[in-house]
Amino acid sequence: MRRVLERRAQLNDAIRRFFRDRGFLEVDTPVVLPANAPEANIDAIPAGSGWLRTSPELAMKRLLAAGFEKIFQLGPVARAGEHGRWHHPEFSLLEWYRSGAGYLEILADAKALLSFLAGELRGATDFTWQGRPVSFAQELWERQSVSQAFIQHAGWDPALKFDPDRFDLDLVTRVEPALPPGHPVVLIDYPAPLAALARRKPDDPLRAERWELYLGGVELANAYSELNGPAEQRARFEEANTCRHRRGAEPYPLDETFLAALAQMPPSGGIALGVDRLLMILADADSLDAVLPFRHG
């Protein structure tokens, strides 16, 4: 228990130093919200007249719209019903945003961050996780397009003809298990219907500028070139609510303050990284539970 708390404090401290040294401002935004970003498959936990945040994304984008250029936040989020080996209903999320940048600048940040953190917590970019060698060395990061990974491991290109059910099933049963386990793998350029809050690629409307980071089959982070068109964002929120309705989940209200501010947001890149999962790897733990001293039943 003491060891876990110390490791976590050490990781949080290293993350803050990394961003402060690069001129990022640490921000704290509200935990109880009148509205989250509606997402087809993410359910919020009700709190008072609103909900606990599922992500600090909307508030941080309002700060980008207000002129902040480099911001980060490290804090708790909550998602209803998510409990398993890699899931816990309440977890620690790191988000950072850069204005005047896109998802590739964020990728460069992520590479620098993870190699820095491995050095701080493990003394080197190469270490072992549960007996297996793992490397966060920047030159070993591997990039695969989502289309390429799906064609290779599942035999179809989801960007050409999207099927959400088949995508999710093939992702967890075919693609994720086939990813190389020993170094970071970036799945990049998602089918446009999975863009969520990402902008479409300017030269390829079938794909969105989004990437996800995997290590050893564990998803660690999700990054976007952020969508900054209020009309398209509203349409995507409504589409997400339609998906929610179809699966029997309640639709969520739209955050009008956010949508109004989005018109002022410059082109930006942003990312959300699961800190507990990263801690699990850096602390050589086999499950999320092992690094969560206070667990939900």
Partner: peptide
Amino acid sequence: FEFVKPGKGQAMYK
């Protein structure tokens, strides 16, 4: 059995 859920995807049970 194991609960799995890609970040933006639906909950599944392997």
